[in-house]
């Protein structure tokens, strides 16, 4: 680890008393009534988003309450399986066997037709340097979907049609 040099002052070290917070003792409860149709559609390799009738924003994955109107959205809309990268970064994990740091791109996807983003991952073969905001991607389904979030195995990169478009002053 790189150390930064700065003007440091040393302080007397007094004793320390230990304590702990067992985060494992919490039980999280949450409501999934709005999730059931979404999970059912995943099993059939379909993507559906939940639309708020009041402001027409579509959330994918579905939200229980519309963030803008505070009403419960209840209209399901079909979505295409393509989307784009809204933002991305890299997560660094230490390889268990070699001990070396590997970087995995983590991306936030906005599904075409939806107005929210969610975190997911790309095809492991995609290099981090090639990822950019606006990159079009497509769902890669698991071979045998079971009706849960793991059915979207990852996202594949697809051809970017905009790259071939010529600007007027070119």
């Amino acid at each position: 680890m790189v150390k930064l040099e700065y003007l440091k002052k040393e302080y007397e070290k007094t004793r320390q008393m230990p304590g702990k917070w067992p985060l494992s003792s919490y039980r999280y409860k949450f409501n999934i009534t709005h999730f059931q149709p979404f999970l059912k559609a995943l099993k059939e390799k379909r993507l559906i988003g939940l639309k708020c009738r009041s402001c027409n924003t579509v959330s994918f994955p579905p939200k229980l309450v519309c963030g803008k109107c505070l009403v419960q959205p209840d209209q399901w809309v079909a979505l295409r399986d393509t989307g784009m990268v809204a933002t991305f970064t890299a997560n660094y994990m230490k390889d268990e066997t070699t001990g070396e740091l590997q970087s995995f791109p983590v991306i936030a996807i906005q599904q075409d037709g939806a107005d929210t983003t969610f975190l997911t991952q790309l095809n492991p073969a995609v290099k981090f340097e090639d990822v950019y905001v606006g990159m079009p991607v497509k769902v890669k389904w698991k071979n045998q979907p079971e009706g849960n979030l793991g059915d979207i195995e990852y996202y594949d990169v697809i051809d970017d049609a905009t790259k071939k478009m010529k600007l007027q002053n070119e």
Binding site: T14, Q16, K20, W21, S24, Y28, K29, N31, I32, T33
Partner: peptide, 20 residues
């Protein structure tokens, strides 16, 4: 009817050391 899921997390514990 509202169905819920109840789950426990098994993986994190935070350790602290308080300077006296």
């Amino acid at each position: 009817t509202r169905k819920r899921i109840e789950i426990t997390t098994g993986f994190v514990q935070a350790d602290y050391n308080f300077w006296v």
